[in-house]
Nucleic acid binder design. Structure first.
Length: 877
RNA sequence: GCCCCCUUGGCGAAAUUGGUAUACGCACGGCACUUAAAAUGCCGGGCCGCAAGGCGUGCCGGUUCAAGUCCGGCAGGGGGCACCA
């Protein structure tokens, strides 16, 4: 009787064996082809959660598989260690952010190690370490030199809870991405990265990222928001209200509808509006009112279109006999286009709403195909579809694209003053990335502000600008502002007393290049060009979808900026991206509505009805919906508890089984237990057969018995299928194929008379051993510790983690006789067992001779027989 | 409002990309082993029907010798963007 596999005792031993031989250390000089697999590094919040287990289990399968396939694999780990939670902890618990962070790192590193990940820990980095962020400061300064960083005063998103500025990407539905607080607009001077310089490239290169999910590419495309249109200048006609202006420039994507224009709309902050407001107190009051309207979703949806007639009029560029009034309107954004539009009410809903309110003309100029000009009228809904131009002078009869072209051409050749009146222009929605954060626990921006020299870069030899450790968190705001001495320094340029920049960088900067730093983590420069150029792009990046337009867009920008400043040679950081699903769990509530943890309750099932009670008090518990694991809903399961109870392999196996990796996986007790049972079953199968099999020294037989061939076909098919599944990141399918192989070996073994088989059919014995070796080898990426124990049991003195992936033998992947389903008129009626290489005529004759086929043909003439080789036969009558 | 994705047994899902629908697992039922339990092993199962057979991948229609897979429409669920001119 084989003893149960004791994961708790065995797993640490195998990890020691890996460590002793240092087998996961990666050498940059290794000549084998490279493979860089990376999972998004964790924020050191305290303890790892199941989402981490899933993420890192997937990455580890790929890393171990690629290693077995002969690649030089880079699989590093680090810590996204700056950020607000450390400061919040400092305030709440009177600890220092640094101490808090490093303690968390120590805990989480231990937890990750207990998972048995094949990580090169010698490359570990923490972004809060000066040895990392000094290079980030260097990059910042090089970007500044290259014109990719600038400083400007602008309206920014202010998070009143976190007391800091947020980038546009970090505002979700008008609320801070972390705090959930409604964001306010404030005017501040901020540092910006010129991500818009790369807007075209960032959008165009998405087409080449064919190993990224289409969904993420679409999201980035929409976020960058490119639109092709034109700038059109309108000459002022009646300009008493704004005498300093002679024209207004608008942006439009519909130059074709220019004849339908009935007003000009400008933003309340448009220079012309500001000028007019100086002369008109009522307009000033109106503009002020517009600014007060919130930017939240609710505010925007309920806000009515409002305008104020400035009294200014402009001349229509294509019809000099017409003038248009200029309105200040609350729905025009100053920071998109030129902050001015021409309103064409018939073909834009917003303009229509506005025109109806202020009684402006509504002239349809695009007629939907099939309708009559005489009867086509616009009611409450603008028409924004295609059609034929009407009421448009020379454009009449043209289709929309032709009309666009005609107007563009004409306005480009028509002069207003000495310049063309119109200009084609591609606009993007993307804004530059504001990175200044008014927080302590982040990378200091290496700038010194001097009264006479302005902002001066910190000289290279003074880097890093280190965070002072003696800071206090007893009042709100940025501790760096309150520090008694840190910010007072001499100007590096003139030596006069000056002041350090006290803002720190957005923590998304830290994660925008860590993947490059991993390639040479000890380099004295930010990157080692030969290392970064040979390792990047990351071959397979794995992480959550929540970073689709945050981290993943910033990193694409950063890589380009690094290329522009000579720190890297490529544009794209991640060649392959995989976004995994979440780990979700049932929620539970006490009768008085309090969330309660699954650890505190017992769930029973009777006749399909599940009931929950409190584990100690026995009071009934309400079973709620299935939600993402979160502390607030208390539906978390601690990975360490699971690893201690079942072992890391079982936790990993369960995370990889059943659910496709891109979908959410439901964590259930029953599921883990099932995974644990499989681990025991695999161990038992290998251990028992290993004892029955003769010594492994036997030579490969020159011929195989039919029984041996059956076993070999099963194992080689599984070998091929598991390899393909892992390559396609279809871990659930790989798991299913392994189950099949275990089932096949078990049932084959049950039909064998042990130990006579070794003598009566040595080729079968050999095939059994081969099958076990394949089984253990293909299971090793998922359950690495157990696989080592099995490998050992099979008599190996080496580690399976270092064993090569076997090559599946092609002739074992095809059978010599096959079973073909035979359909009559598309319905399956019989099966034909026939030689795999039989020719079509033989197959047809044999199929028509089948009893089930003859019965359903009922003597009717056969019209056609379709034979799909190796697949199916369809008889048409 | 615009864009995208998903829908297959009691449940998680698979289906060589147009070729035997439901592999594999979970849960369930039966049996064996056991004093008993646990553990383990074996057997079972889409639905209707005694059977022959019929019907079955959210719903309606189409293309095809053949549709879970392709096309058109609809419903339900999820996600992204959103006063972006």
């Amino acid at each position: 009787m084989t003893e149960r596999y004791n994961a708790r005792e065995a797993e640490p031993r195998w990890r020691d064996a890996w460590n002793k031989h240092d087998i996961f250390r990666t050498d940059n000089a290794d000549p084998r082809p490279k493979y860089y697999v990376l999972e998004m590094f964790p924020y050191p919040s305290g303890r790892i959660h199941m989402g981490h287990v899933r993420n890192y289990a997937m990455g580890d399968v790929v890393a171990r598989y690629k290693r077995a396939k002969g690649f030089n694999v880079l699989h590093p780990m680090g810590w996204d260690a700056f950020g607000l939670p450390a400061e919040n902890a400092a305030m709440a618990n009177k600890v220092h952010p640094k101490g808090w962070t490093y303690e968390n790192i120590a805990t989480m590193r231990g937890q990750l190690k207990s998972m048995g990940l094949s990580i090169d820990w010698s490359r570990e980095i923490a972004t809060c370490d000066p040895s990392y962020y000094r290079h980030q400061q260097k990059l910042f300064l090089d970007f500044l030199k290259a014109g990719l960083v600038y400083r400007k005063k602008s309206k920014v998103n202010w998070d009143p809870v976190d007391q800091t500025v947020l980038a546009n990407e970090q505002v979700i539905d008008g609320r801070g991405w972390r705090s959930g607080a409604e964001v306010e607009l404030r005017e501040l001077t901020q540092w910006f990265f010129k991500i818009t310089d790369f807007a075209d490239e960032l959008i165009d290169a998405l087409d080449g990222l064919d190993r990224w999910p289409e969904k993420v590419r679409t999201m980035q495309r929409n976020w960058i928001g490119r639109s092709e249109g034109m700038l059109v200048r309108f000459a002022l006609e009646s300009k008493a209200a704004a005498p300093e202006f002679s024209e207004i420039e608008v942006y439009t994507t519909r130059p074709d509808t220019l004849f339908g224009a009935s007003f000009i709309g400008i933003a309340p902050d448009h220079p012309l509006a500001l000028e007019a407001a100086r002369r008109d107190p009522a307009l000033a009051a109106f503009a002020e009112e517009c600014r007060k309207t919130g930017t939240s979703v609710a505010a925007i949806e309920t806000a009515e279109k409002q305008g104020y007639d400035t009294g200014v009029t402009v001349r229509h560029p294509l019809d000099p006999s017409r003038t248009l009034p200029v309105y200040v309107a609350n729905f025009i954004l100053m920071d998109y286009g030129t902050g001015a539009i021409f309103g064409c009410p018939a073909h834009d809903q917003r303009d229509l709403d506005f025109a109806r309110k202020y009684d402006l003309p509504v002239t349809p100029v695009v007629l939907p195909t099939g309708l009559d000009v005489a009867t086509f009228v616009i009611g409450d809904t603008a028409y924004d579809g295609d059609g034929t131009l009407v009421h448009s002078d020379v454009l009449d009869g043209l289709a929309v694209p032709e009309a666009k072209e005609a107007v563009s051409g004409r306005l480009e050749s028509q002069k207003l003053g000495d310049r063309p009146q119109g200009k084609r222009k591609v606009n993007v929605r993307l804004r530059d990335w504001g990175i200044s954060r008014q927080r302590y626990w982040g990378c200091p921006i290496p700038i010194i502000h001097c009264a006479s020299c302005g902002p001066v870069p910190v000289p290279d030899d003074q880097l890093p600008v280190q965070l002072p450790e003696d800071v206090t968190f007893d009042r709100p705001g940025n501790p760096l502002e309150h520090h008694p001495s840190w910010k007072n320094v001499a100007c590096p340029s003139c030596g006069a007393p000056a002041r350090r920049e006290t803002d720190t960088m957005d923590t998304f900067v830290d994660s925008s290049w860590y993947f490059a730093r991993f390639t040479a983590p000890d380099c004295a420069q930010p990157t080692d060009r030969s290392a970064v150029d040979s390792w990047l792009p990351v071959d397979q990046y794995i992480g959550g979808i929540e970073h689709a337009v945050l981290h993943l867009l910033y990193s694409r920008f950063f890589t380009r900026a690094m290329k522009a400043t000579g720190h890297a040679g490529m544009s794209e950081p991640f060649a392959g991206l995989f976004t995994q699903g979440m780990v979700v769990h049932e929620t539970y509530k006490t009768p008085d509505g309090q969330w309660i943890s699954p650890a505190e309750i017992v769930v029973t099932e009777n006749d399909g009805r599940r009931q929950a009670v409190h584990a100690t008090s026995g009071e009934p518990i309400v079973i709620g919906s299935i939600e993402k694991m979160s502390k607030s809903k208390k539906n978390t399961v601690d990975p360490t508890d699971i690893i201690e109870t079942y072992g890391a392999d079982t936790a990993r196996w369960f995370m990889l089984s059943d659910s496709p990796p891109e979908r959410d996986v439901i964590w259930t007790e029953a599921g883990v237990e099932g995974a644990g049972r499989f681990a025991q079953r695999l161990w038992r199968l290998v251990a028992e057969l290993a004892e029955r099999l003769p010594e492994s020294s036997a030579e490969r037989p020159t011929s195989f018995s039919p029984a041996a061939l059956d076993i070999r076909r099963a194992s080689h098919r599984s070998l091929a299928a598991v390899g393909e599944s892992i390559e396609g990141l279809r871990f659930n399918v790989a798991v299913a194929r392994i189950y099949e192989l275990v089932n096949a070996i078990s049932s084959a073994s049950a039909q064998v008379r042990w130990p006579e088989i070794a003598v009566s059919d040595p080729s079968s014995a050999w095939a059994f051993r081969e099958a076990l070796e394949i089984l253990v080898r293909i299971t090793a990426p998922m359950m690495p510790h157990l696989a080592e124990a099995c490998w050992d049991k099979l008599g190996h003195s080496s580690l399976v983690a270092e064993a090569a992936w076997p090559q599946a033998e092609a002739d074992l992947l095809v059978a010599d006789t096959i079973t073909l389903p035979v359909q009559v008129n598309g319905k399956k009626r019989d099966e034909l067992i026939i030689a795999a290489d039989a020719d079509a005529a033989t197959i047809e004759a044999a199929a028509l001779g089948l009893e089930g086929v003859a019965r359903s043909i009922e003597g009717k003439p056969v019209r056609k027989v379709i034979i799909v080789p190796q697949r199916i036969i369809n008889v048409v009558v």
